[in-house]
């Protein structure tokens, strides 16, 4: 199945092959979790602060279904 992964701010550097302004479509096995998706794409779990799935707050253990849109945010502290 395919899911979409969008990373924000300083997490972008872990997806160096993708244009800055685009999300990534990833092919994964059914029932893949958010953490498995991040591991597959090379985004370090310890750099991720917030996960949203389909624009709702979620966690790393959430299992994904076809077409899910995953957003990953690092800690952002600047002001």
């Amino acid at each position: 199945m395919q899911v979409e992964l969008k990373v924000f701010a300083t997490l972008r550097k872990y997806l160096p092959d993708h244009p800055l302004d685009q999300s990534v479509t990833v092919t994964v096995e059914p029932h893949t979790t958010v953490s498995q998706l991040l591991e597959k794409t090379g985004v370090p779990l310890d750099k991720v602060k917030i996960i949203m799935v389909n624009n709702r707050h979620a966690d790393l253990d959430q299992r994904l279904v076809e077409g899910d849109r995953v957003a990953a945010f690092p800690p952002v502290a600047g002001g």
């Binding site: 701010a9 690092p74 952002v76 600047g78 002001g79």
Partner: peptide, 10 residues
């Protein structure tokens, strides 16, 4: 609350 980094803010 708000925070910013690079081209990003929330």
């Amino acid at each position: 609350h708000a925070a910013v980094s690079e081209y990003y803010g929330h």
